[in-house]
Protein backbone atom coordinates (compact mmCIF):
# COMPACT_ATOMS: atom_id res chain seq x y z
CA UNK A 1 0.00 0.00 0.00
CA UNK A 2 1.57 3.34 -1.05
CA UNK A 3 2.44 5.59 1.89
CA UNK A 4 0.07 8.37 0.83
CA UNK A 5 -2.92 6.01 0.77
CA UNK A 6 -4.89 6.03 4.01
CA UNK A 7 -7.68 3.69 3.01
CA UNK A 8 -7.64 0.94 0.46
CA UNK A 9 -10.41 -1.50 -0.24
CA UNK A 10 -9.93 -4.49 -2.49
CA UNK A 11 -12.96 -6.32 -3.79
CA UNK A 12 -14.68 -5.46 -0.52
CA UNK A 13 -17.96 -7.31 -0.23
CA UNK A 14 -20.49 -7.58 2.55
CA UNK A 15 -23.42 -9.95 2.57
CA UNK A 16 -25.84 -9.83 5.47
CA UNK A 17 -27.15 -13.22 6.51
CA UNK A 18 -29.93 -14.30 8.82
CA UNK A 19 -29.57 -16.47 11.92
CA UNK A 20 -29.48 -19.64 9.80
CA UNK A 21 -26.77 -18.30 7.53
CA UNK A 22 -29.11 -17.64 4.62
CA UNK A 23 -28.28 -14.61 2.53
CA UNK A 24 -30.54 -11.65 3.30
CA UNK A 25 -28.96 -8.88 1.30
CA UNK A 26 -25.71 -8.09 -0.47
CA UNK A 27 -24.98 -4.68 1.03
CA UNK A 28 -21.67 -4.07 -0.72
CA UNK A 29 -20.30 -5.63 -3.86
CA UNK A 30 -16.62 -5.76 -4.78
CA UNK A 31 -15.72 -2.23 -3.77
CA UNK A 32 -12.29 -1.06 -4.92
CA UNK A 33 -11.26 2.38 -3.84
CA UNK A 34 -8.49 4.40 -2.25
CA UNK A 35 -8.53 7.45 -0.07
CA UNK A 36 -5.33 9.45 -0.12
CA UNK A 37 -3.66 11.34 2.64
CA UNK A 38 -4.91 14.90 3.08
CA UNK A 39 -8.01 14.69 0.95
CA UNK A 40 -11.65 15.10 1.78
CA UNK A 41 -13.46 12.13 0.38
CA UNK A 42 -17.23 12.05 0.04
CA UNK A 43 -19.33 8.92 0.06
CA UNK A 44 -22.66 9.42 -1.65
CA UNK A 45 -25.59 7.20 -2.31
CA UNK A 46 -29.28 6.80 -1.63
CA UNK A 47 -30.53 4.94 1.40
CA UNK A 48 -29.41 1.32 1.37
CA UNK A 49 -26.64 1.98 -1.16
CA UNK A 50 -23.88 0.68 1.09
CA UNK A 51 -22.37 3.92 2.42
CA UNK A 52 -22.82 3.12 6.07
CA UNK A 53 -21.79 -0.50 5.50
CA UNK A 54 -18.57 0.77 3.91
CA UNK A 55 -17.86 3.03 6.87
CA UNK A 56 -18.61 0.24 9.33
CA UNK A 57 -16.32 -2.12 7.44
CA UNK A 58 -13.56 0.49 7.52
CA UNK A 59 -14.07 0.90 11.27
CA UNK A 60 -14.08 -2.84 11.95
CA UNK A 61 -17.64 -2.73 13.25
CA UNK A 62 -18.50 -5.27 10.56
CA UNK A 63 -16.35 -8.04 9.11
CA UNK A 64 -16.10 -8.32 5.30
CA UNK A 65 -17.65 -11.36 3.66
CA UNK A 66 -14.82 -11.25 1.15
CA UNK A 67 -12.18 -8.82 0.05
CA UNK A 68 -10.05 -6.56 2.16
CA UNK A 69 -10.30 -3.20 3.84
CA UNK A 70 -7.02 -1.65 4.88
CA UNK A 71 -6.68 1.49 6.96
CA UNK A 72 -3.19 2.89 7.38
CA UNK A 73 -2.02 -0.37 5.85
CA UNK A 74 -3.58 -2.46 8.61
CA UNK A 75 -6.57 -4.71 8.46
CA UNK A 76 -9.70 -2.75 9.34
CA UNK A 77 -10.49 -5.19 12.17
CA UNK A 78 -7.15 -4.39 13.82
CA UNK A 79 -7.97 -2.28 16.87
CA UNK A 80 -4.57 -0.57 16.89
CA UNK A 81 -5.49 1.44 13.77
CA UNK A 82 -8.07 3.27 15.90
CA UNK A 83 -5.28 5.19 17.61
CA UNK A 84 -5.22 7.45 14.54
CA UNK A 85 -8.91 7.48 13.75
CA UNK A 86 -11.82 9.69 14.75
CA UNK A 87 -15.39 8.70 14.07
CA UNK A 88 -18.57 10.72 14.19
CA UNK A 89 -21.52 8.34 13.86
CA UNK A 90 -24.68 9.11 11.96
CA UNK A 91 -26.61 9.66 15.18
CA UNK A 92 -25.07 10.77 18.43
CA UNK A 93 -24.42 7.36 19.92
CA UNK A 94 -23.07 8.77 23.15
CA UNK A 95 -23.85 8.03 26.80
CA UNK A 96 -26.72 10.33 27.57
CA UNK A 97 -26.17 10.27 31.31
CA UNK A 98 -22.76 11.94 31.00
CA UNK A 99 -22.17 15.66 30.48
CA UNK A 100 -19.86 17.11 27.81
CA UNK A 101 -16.79 17.21 30.03
CA UNK A 102 -17.34 13.67 31.32
CA UNK A 103 -17.94 12.44 27.77
CA UNK A 104 -14.69 13.86 26.46
CA UNK A 105 -12.82 12.71 29.55
CA UNK A 106 -14.18 9.19 29.09
CA UNK A 107 -13.19 8.98 25.43
CA UNK A 108 -9.83 10.53 26.25
CA UNK A 109 -9.21 7.76 28.76
CA UNK A 110 -9.98 5.21 26.06
CA UNK A 111 -6.99 6.66 24.21
CA UNK A 112 -4.92 6.19 27.35
CA UNK A 113 -4.40 9.95 27.61
CA UNK A 114 -3.06 11.27 30.92
CA UNK A 115 -5.50 13.32 33.02
CA UNK A 116 -3.82 16.66 32.37
CA UNK A 117 -3.81 16.15 28.61
CA UNK A 118 -7.44 15.05 28.72
CA UNK A 119 -8.50 18.14 30.62
CA UNK A 120 -6.69 20.48 28.24
CA UNK A 121 -7.92 18.71 25.14
CA UNK A 122 -11.51 18.59 26.41
CA UNK A 123 -11.51 22.31 27.21
CA UNK A 124 -10.06 23.11 23.79
CA UNK A 125 -12.63 20.98 21.94
CA UNK A 126 -15.58 22.23 23.96
CA UNK A 127 -14.58 25.76 23.00
CA UNK A 128 -14.09 24.71 19.39
CA UNK A 129 -17.58 23.26 19.07
CA UNK A 130 -19.16 26.10 21.07
CA UNK A 131 -20.48 24.17 24.05
CA UNK A 132 -18.78 26.08 26.85
CA UNK A 133 -22.05 27.22 28.39
CA UNK A 134 -23.54 23.75 28.32
CA UNK A 135 -20.56 21.60 29.24
CA UNK A 136 -22.02 20.54 32.59
CA UNK A 137 -25.42 19.51 31.24
CA UNK A 138 -26.17 15.85 30.68
CA UNK A 139 -26.25 14.94 26.99
CA UNK A 140 -29.85 13.82 27.30
CA UNK A 141 -30.75 17.51 27.66
CA UNK A 142 -28.92 18.47 24.45
CA UNK A 143 -30.63 19.44 21.21
CA UNK A 144 -29.76 17.44 18.12
CA UNK A 145 -27.38 20.14 16.93
CA UNK A 146 -25.59 20.25 20.29
CA UNK A 147 -25.35 16.45 20.28
CA UNK A 148 -23.70 16.60 16.83
CA UNK A 149 -21.20 19.11 18.14
CA UNK A 150 -20.18 17.03 21.14
CA UNK A 151 -20.11 14.00 18.82
CA UNK A 152 -17.68 15.83 16.60
CA UNK A 153 -15.60 16.83 19.61
CA UNK A 154 -15.29 13.22 20.76
CA UNK A 155 -14.25 12.24 17.23
CA UNK A 156 -11.34 14.67 17.49
CA UNK A 157 -10.30 13.96 21.08
CA UNK A 158 -7.18 12.10 19.93
CA UNK A 159 -6.25 14.63 17.24
CA UNK A 160 -6.76 11.92 14.62
CA UNK A 161 -5.08 11.68 11.23
CA UNK A 162 -8.16 10.20 9.59
CA UNK A 163 -11.69 11.27 10.47
CA UNK A 164 -14.83 9.46 9.38
CA UNK A 165 -17.88 11.66 9.49
CA UNK A 166 -21.24 10.06 8.92
CA UNK A 167 -23.73 12.79 7.99
CA UNK A 168 -21.74 15.48 9.86
CA UNK A 169 -24.14 18.35 9.14
CA UNK A 170 -27.33 16.47 9.80
CA UNK A 171 -29.45 18.27 12.39
CA UNK A 172 -27.43 21.47 12.27
CA UNK A 173 -28.79 24.91 11.43
CA UNK A 174 -27.27 26.83 8.48
CA UNK A 175 -24.74 28.57 10.68
CA UNK A 176 -23.77 25.30 12.37
CA UNK A 177 -23.53 23.64 8.95
CA UNK A 178 -21.24 26.39 7.70
CA UNK A 179 -19.06 26.06 10.82
CA UNK A 180 -18.74 22.32 10.37
CA UNK A 181 -17.83 22.70 6.71
CA UNK A 182 -15.23 25.32 7.63
CA UNK A 183 -13.91 22.97 10.26
CA UNK A 184 -13.62 20.13 7.75
CA UNK A 185 -11.67 22.36 5.42
CA UNK A 186 -9.45 23.43 8.32
CA UNK A 187 -8.81 19.78 9.11
CA UNK A 188 -7.70 19.23 5.53
CA UNK A 189 -5.42 22.25 5.82
CA UNK A 190 -3.87 20.61 8.86
CA UNK A 191 -3.06 17.63 6.66
CA UNK A 192 -5.79 15.36 7.96
CA UNK A 193 -7.78 12.97 5.83
CA UNK A 194 -11.55 13.13 5.98
CA UNK A 195 -14.11 10.63 4.80
CA UNK A 196 -17.64 11.93 4.96
CA UNK A 197 -20.95 10.61 3.87
CA UNK A 198 -23.87 12.91 3.41
CA UNK A 199 -27.24 13.20 1.84
CA UNK A 200 -26.77 16.94 1.55
CA UNK A 201 -25.18 17.09 -1.86
CA UNK A 202 -24.39 20.78 -1.68
CA UNK A 203 -22.29 20.13 1.42
CA UNK A 204 -20.33 17.43 -0.34
CA UNK A 205 -19.87 19.62 -3.40
CA UNK A 206 -18.60 22.44 -1.19
CA UNK A 207 -15.93 20.55 0.70
CA UNK A 208 -15.03 17.26 -0.97
CA UNK A 209 -12.04 16.75 -3.22
CA UNK A 210 -13.17 13.37 -4.45
CA UNK A 211 -16.35 11.41 -4.17
CA UNK A 212 -17.60 7.89 -4.62
CA UNK A 213 -21.22 7.31 -5.51
CA UNK A 214 -22.71 4.01 -4.44
CA UNK A 215 -25.98 2.49 -5.48
CA UNK A 216 -27.38 -0.88 -4.47
CA UNK A 217 -24.02 -1.80 -3.01
CA UNK A 218 -22.06 -1.05 -6.16
CA UNK A 219 -19.62 1.69 -6.90
CA UNK A 220 -21.14 3.81 -9.64
CA UNK A 221 -18.84 6.77 -9.75
CA UNK A 222 -15.46 7.68 -8.33
CA UNK A 223 -13.33 10.71 -9.02
CA UNK A 224 -12.56 14.36 -8.39
CA UNK A 225 -15.63 16.48 -7.84
CA UNK A 226 -14.65 19.17 -10.33
CA UNK A 227 -13.89 16.55 -12.95
CA UNK A 228 -17.04 14.60 -12.38
CA UNK A 229 -19.23 17.66 -12.64
CA UNK A 230 -17.77 18.69 -15.99
CA UNK A 231 -20.11 18.13 -18.98
CA UNK A 232 -17.72 16.85 -21.60
CA UNK A 233 -20.07 16.77 -24.55
CA UNK A 234 -20.97 20.45 -24.30
CA UNK A 235 -18.99 23.66 -24.75
CA UNK A 236 -19.70 26.88 -23.03
CA UNK A 237 -18.46 30.16 -24.38
CA UNK A 238 -18.68 33.33 -22.41
CA UNK A 239 -17.91 36.42 -24.43
CA UNK A 240 -18.28 40.20 -24.17
CA UNK A 241 -18.63 42.85 -26.87
CA UNK A 242 -20.13 40.66 -29.52
CA UNK A 243 -22.75 42.01 -31.85
CA UNK A 244 -26.03 40.22 -32.25
CA UNK A 245 -24.85 38.84 -35.60
CA UNK A 246 -21.64 37.54 -34.18
CA UNK A 247 -23.50 35.52 -31.59
CA UNK A 248 -25.00 33.41 -34.37
CA UNK A 249 -21.59 32.13 -35.42
CA UNK A 250 -19.72 30.56 -32.56
CA UNK A 251 -16.00 30.25 -32.13
CA UNK A 252 -14.99 30.28 -35.79
CA UNK A 253 -16.23 33.72 -36.38
CA UNK A 254 -15.33 35.33 -33.05
CA UNK A 255 -11.79 36.08 -34.07
CA UNK A 256 -12.87 37.16 -37.52
CA UNK A 257 -15.20 39.67 -35.96
CA UNK A 258 -12.50 40.88 -33.51
CA UNK A 259 -14.43 39.54 -30.58
CA UNK A 260 -12.68 38.98 -27.24
CA UNK A 261 -13.02 35.40 -25.98
CA UNK A 262 -13.19 35.53 -22.21
CA UNK A 263 -13.76 31.87 -21.41
CA UNK A 264 -14.17 28.69 -23.31
CA UNK A 265 -14.66 25.54 -21.31
CA UNK A 266 -16.99 22.68 -20.54
CA UNK A 267 -19.89 23.79 -18.44
CA UNK A 268 -20.60 22.01 -15.18
CA UNK A 269 -23.76 20.56 -13.81
CA UNK A 270 -24.68 20.41 -10.15
CA UNK A 271 -23.82 17.45 -8.02
CA UNK A 272 -27.50 16.90 -7.46
CA UNK A 273 -28.14 16.51 -11.19
CA UNK A 274 -25.17 14.17 -11.54
CA UNK A 275 -26.29 12.11 -8.58
CA UNK A 276 -29.85 11.74 -9.82
CA UNK A 277 -28.75 10.83 -13.33
CA UNK A 278 -26.42 8.12 -11.98
CA UNK A 279 -29.12 6.67 -9.80
CA UNK A 280 -31.60 6.64 -12.70
CA UNK A 281 -29.01 5.08 -15.01
CA UNK A 282 -28.09 2.46 -12.42
CA UNK A 283 -31.71 1.49 -11.95
CA UNK A 284 -32.18 1.22 -15.71
CA UNK A 285 -29.00 -0.81 -16.21
CA UNK A 286 -28.03 -2.58 -12.99
CA UNK A 287 -24.44 -3.67 -12.61
CA UNK A 288 -23.03 -1.22 -15.11
CA UNK A 289 -20.56 1.47 -14.09
CA UNK A 290 -21.94 4.91 -15.00
CA UNK A 291 -18.89 6.08 -16.93
CA UNK A 292 -15.66 4.43 -17.85
CA UNK A 293 -12.78 5.44 -15.58
CA UNK A 294 -10.66 6.82 -18.44
CA UNK A 295 -13.18 9.50 -19.25
CA UNK A 296 -12.53 11.30 -15.96
Amino acid sequence: MPPDVVVETQNLTKVYRDFWGRRKVRALRALDMEIRRGEIFGLLGPNGSGKTTTIKLLLGLLFPTSGKALVFGRDATDVSKNERIGYLPEESYLYRFLNAEETLDFYGRLFDMPAKVRRERAAELITLVGLNKDKRRQLKEYSKGMARRIGLAQAMINDPDFILLDEPTSGLDPIGTREIKDLIIRLKEQGKTVLMSSHLLADVQDVCDRIAILHQGELKELGRVDSLLKLRDETEIRARGLSAEAQAEIRAVIERHQGNVLMMDNPTTTLEDLFLSIVRDSEARPGRRARPEEEK
Binding site: L61, E83, Y87, L110
Partner: peptide, 8 residues
Amino acid sequence: HTVVTKPV
Protein backbone atom coordinates in the same frame (compact mmCIF):
# COMPACT_ATOMS: atom_id res chain seq x y z
CA HIS B 1 -19.86 2.11 18.19
CA THR B 2 -18.13 5.09 19.73
CA VAL B 3 -16.25 2.80 22.11
CA VAL B 4 -15.01 0.05 19.81
CA THR B 5 -13.85 2.63 17.27
CA LYS B 6 -11.36 3.78 19.88
CA PRO B 7 -8.29 1.63 20.60
CA VAL B 8 -10.34 -0.47 23.00
